[in-house]
Design a protein around this nucleic acid. Structure first.
Lengths: 229, 229
DNA sequence: GGAGATTATGTCAGCGACTGACATTCGGCA
DNA sequence: TGCCGAATGTCAGTCGCTGACATAATCTCC
């Protein structure tokens, strides 16, 4: 979310312009809906919160809610979605001399670090991100929707990697395989974070991510008779 | 009717016995529901099939449907679930001298091969499995539910691997990481299968799985400047 | 072989997510 | 100012899903 305020919409110079009252109001009610949904979900659970509640908390009709979000899930996952977009953006900017795996690792760490610095508190903060991930993890329908989103992100990662290394993902399986592996290891780290003892700030999460990635080699290697590092 | 055939109901050796009329009928209507759901979903799509349709195709009430399945998704994914259970069973029986990764690869291949031989046609056959996977892949809500199921299976895999190698998954990250990697590579192979050109039988799928696993090393290794094998 | 306990099923009423259609209001712009 | 299009509200309806209660089928045990 760090570099996100200027949302380029159409023309190149139009980029920084004030997007007009209508557009601003739209963004405003959307934010308000996400915010309200967030609070209600965390306060009383996902299932026990009705869309009507969210809508009337922002003073719009239920129908309007569904014009902003395809379903209740989407409102809950909106925050995560922004973070994921930022990760993709980071990946685009990695130097070409990094290996694909290095680029992925560096991007995800940069993303967490920036997001952590950017918003130390308030909605979208790291602490509320943790709460949100906990909510997702033990709300089956939310978890399902989230996993689907993640796999869609993976497709984008495949494209970016293939482009970066100049090869065709339909010919060469490496981008697909690496994106899949990356995503799953990341998710394992996420799980540890939510399940674990002391949920430290972003640095704690970063440490967890690195730990998990460092086990990639050992996990794939032969037997496990010797203890891991 | 058969008032007194020897029908011990609680004894341990009862395991293989005919499970009683009630139990048999239950299994029967459950199978019929899965079957009907399967046909309707493939015929007219998941969203355009109502639960009422499925129920009345088997001549039971809608309420009964929901006593067998928690939701519409579950009926669609029931076939997959059986296959996944069989995979876990295979994993349990792998010899101890295989490395964890080898055991996983061997189990999934055995599972596909056995299921392929077992049911050459009809419901639950390989061809209808392919159709089902296509349906899942382009039905967002089904895909989401399926992914959630897969991650639950992964947890079991973690347990089995940890037990097999005699270590504690909370201390040692390798089981978790390997299970995650395995699951994601498998899913990549599944995607190729559904998206791909010639959907050959189970052997085609097995070949695809092996291709993907063989790219694990190359994908994680340094740069990709040299073409993959 | 029948009385009584279990258990599957049906029926009914109701909530909540989601959608299409149409009316209304509000911002953008000549 | 006045028109156009976009955002919103209203309404009615479908469908997934659930709790409560009644009924009918199986099971158990005497």
């Amino acid at each position: 979310m760090a570099a996100h305020t200027p949302r380029p919409t159409a023309a190149p110079e139009d980029a920084g312009r004030t997007p007009g009252l209508r557009e601003r109001k739209k963004q405003q009610t959307r934010d308000a809906l996400v915010q309200a949904a967030h609070e209600l979900f965390l306060g009383q659970g996902f299932a026990r919160t009705t869309v009507d509640e969210i809508a009337s908390a922002v003073d719009v009709s239920q129908r309007t809610f569904f014009r902003y979000f395809a379903n209740k899930d989407e409102a809950a996952l909106a925050v995560m979605a922004e973070a994921e977009d930022y990760f993709i953006e980071c990946l685009h900017h990695r130097p070409a001399d990094e290996t694909p795996l290095q680029a992925l690792r560096a991007s995800i760490i940069k993303a967490w670090r920036d997001l952590g610095n950017d918003k130390a508190s308030g909605p979208g903060s790291i602490t509320s991100a943790l709460e949100l991930m906990r909510l997702i993890e033990d709300t089956p329908t939310l978890l399902a929707a989230h996993l689907r989103r993640v796999t869609e992100q993976e497709r984008i990662v495949v494209r970016v990697l293939a482009e970066r290394e100049g090869l065709d993902p339909r010919e060469d399986l490496r981008p697909t395989v690496l994106a899949a592996v990356f995503g799953s290891v990341l998710r394992a780290a996420h799980l540890s974070w939510t399940a674990d003892r002391e949920p430290e700030g972003p640095e704690g999460m970063i440490a967890l991510i690195e730990q998990h990635f460092d086990q990639l080699g050992p996990a794939l290697a032969g037997h496990w008779r010797t203890p891991a590092t």
